[in-house]
Computed example of a mutant assay.
Amino acid sequence: MNRLVITLLLALAPMLSTSQAFEKYENMKEVDAMVMTSKMFKMLAKVDLSESDPEAREYMKLIENLDRIQIYKSSNANVRSQMAADVKSYLQKGSLEELMRVNEDGKNIKFYSMPGKNDNYVKELFMFLDGQSEGEPISIILSITGEIDLSQLSKLTADLKVPGAEELKKANKKS
């Protein structure tokens, strides 16, 4: 019985640490934060859609399999340093694989993922952007967890107006 409990805790630990690693930014006044949970996705998935719109049905299928989306954005130098340190620590845990790096227009963007049930899915997509946007210093942390269909992901990140979404769309076309 003890082995079962320990095994279960070890299996759940990476999922729990994702949200806990960055939750502290939610209540900082220097940080713009958005967190959407699985309850919100389930509610959105119940929205009555036209059966004749296949794109809308695919989009709903994508979001109903998501667990959480977290986006934290700051221009404050101290917070940006703290974000960079927390991201480095989070990545050193070793559960994410690097997907790509983009250094363009004063922005350094890194994408990581945790493998999913097959090559078309990931359990987590993680992005860290550090640099300049419209002449302002900026850092952004994005974490999307759940059963994420990579073929639909660029649509979601574009709709959320996430910086780096365009780079992710380009990467998807290459895959």
Rank of each mutant, 00 (worst) to 15 (best):
V102K: 05
D105P: 03
Q70Y: 06
L168C: 04
S89I: 01
K73W: 00
Q152H: 10
R101H: 12
D159I: 12
S81P: 00
Y59D: 11
Q92K: 14
K123N: 14
D48H: 10
S151V: 01
N108I: 05
R101F: 03
E51L: 10
Y90W: 14
I71C: 06
F128K: 01
D149Q: 06
K107R: 06
E124M: 08
M114D: 08
M60F: 13
S154E: 11
E167T: 07
K61V: 05
A84Y: 08
A84N: 11
N103E: 15
L96W: 15
A171K: 12
E134P: 09
K93L: 10
D119I: 14
K170D: 09
E55F: 12
L156F: 15
T157Q: 04
N103W: 06
L62Y: 08
I140P: 02
V102D: 04
I63K: 08
Y72V: 05
E124K: 13
S52H: 12
F126A: 02
D53Y: 03
E104S: 07
M83I: 04
V79Y: 01
A77P: 13
K170Y: 00
Q82N: 10
Q70T: 10
E64G: 06
K169I: 05
P163E: 11
Q92A: 12
M60P: 00
N120C: 01
I109R: 00
I138G: 01
I63M: 09
A165Y: 07
I109L: 00
E134D: 15
K61H: 11
F126W: 06
A158Q: 14
L96R: 13
I140G: 03
L125E: 02
M114K: 15
A84D: 13
S151M: 01
S154P: 11
K155Q: 11
K161E: 15
G135M: 09
L150R: 03
L153I: 09
S113P: 00
S81N: 14
I138F: 04
Y59K: 12
L62V: 12
D159K: 13
Y112N: 02
Y72H: 06
D159H: 07
L96A: 01
V79M: 00
R80G: 02
S74T: 13
F126N: 04
F126K: 07
K110S: 14
L156H: 06
Y59I: 07
S154V: 10
E55R: 15
E136A: 14
K161I: 08
Y59G: 04
Q82M: 00
A85N: 12
D159A: 15
P115W: 02
L91F: 00
D48V: 15
L168A: 02
E58D: 14
S139K: 06
L160A: 07
I138A: 08
P54G: 05
I140D: 01
L168E: 02
L142K: 08
G106N: 12
E134W: 08
S81A: 14
G164C: 03
K169E: 11
F126E: 00
L168M: 11
A85W: 04
F111I: 03
P163W: 05
E167Q: 13
